[in-house]
């Protein structure tokens, strides 16, 4: 009796998971499918699930409809630069918060938490004014600098550093390692799964970010892919949804690749504590 109950409960659980998975995966698959259809098929009703003819030309059209190479380069520069800066600022900050007693520590960490809770949309105006005062608006700097320090990164890394046993750090001190050295040769390698996860979050967020580049830039030379792709919508004769979706496929392809490569690390990051 109990056994049957357990089994059917499992079934319900799985069914639920399947529904949720479909909810997430379907729009994505729909985008992929649309990217390969020709325009008449896009308009067809009832819609087809899979394209009748595979229209690779959409990708070419998307790529050639603007300076996409430049957008891509900008996107890479911005996302990578942010990643490096956040890494360089979060590691020492997290180490200090996790391992040192200093006056004002709680207050400062409180500020970090506050920063974590304030969405960028609220503070973009003062930042815009500030950057424009420095003459940085409409440069790549305006996309990079505001994100040079990540409250989320500091928070996440601090948790990871706090897990490192005291004795390991003490052993390193007895091995004549400087604090700087301990940070980079002991703490960072031990927090690798968390670092990888954070790096992915950060990269994906800034790679996909639409809002910030949209406000901070007004010429193609400094635009990133998401803004560039949205300009596909403005083509005359109505939106070419298939080309638009092909552009989006180009946008997310690098992220998919990274995700599949780093999957192992991501999963590890979430099961690390239990080891």
């Amino acid at each position: 009796m109990k056994r049957v109950g357990a089994i059917s409960l499992k079934t319900v659980e799985w069914a639920g998971l399947l529904v949720v998975a479909l909810l997430f995966v379907f729009p994505f698959l729909w985008m992929a499918s649309t990217a390969f259809k020709d325009m008449s098929e896009v308009r067809q009703f009832p819609p087809t699930l899979l394209p009748e003819t595979w229209e690779w030309g959409n990708f070419v059209q998307a790529w050639e409809s603007g300076p996409f190479l430049m957008f891509t380069v900008n996107s890479i520069v911005v996302a990578v630069a942010i990643l490096i800066l956040q890494f360089l600022t979060a590691v020492p900050a997290a180490y200090a918060f996790a391992r040192y007693q200093f006056p004002g520590r709680n207050l400062l960490f409180g500020l970090v938490l506050v920063a974590l809770m304030i969405p960028g949309y609220i503070i973009f105006l003062p930042i815009y004014v500030q950057l424009s005062g420095w003459g940085l608006v409409n440069t790549l700097w305006s996309l990079i600098l505001p994100y040079a320090a990540s409250a989320f990164g500091i928070f996440l890394l601090r948790q990871a550093f706090m897990q490192v046993p005291d004795e390991v750090i003490e052993a390193a001190r007895l091995d004549n390692a400087s604090e700087w050295k301990i940070m980079w040769t002991i703490m960072v390698p031990m927090a690798k799964p968390v670092l990888v996860t954070f790096g992915l979050f950060s990269f994906i967020y800034h790679w996909n970010d639409y809002f910030w580049p949209l406000i901070m830039t007004n010429s193609d030379e400094v635009r990133t892919l998401p803004v560039g792709i949205s300009s596909l919508r403005m083509s005359d004769g109505g939106t070419l949804w298939n080309v638009m979706m092909a552009g989006n496929m180009i946008l997310i392809l690098p992220i998919l690749v990274i995700f599949f490569v780093a999957q192992r690390h991501i999963i590890k990051a979430f099961v690390y504590q239990s080891k």
Partner: peptide
């Protein structure tokens, strides 16, 4: 140390 405190990485 009692728990050895080796560098795990």
């Amino acid at each position: 140390f009692q728990n050895y405190a080796l560098y795990p990485t």
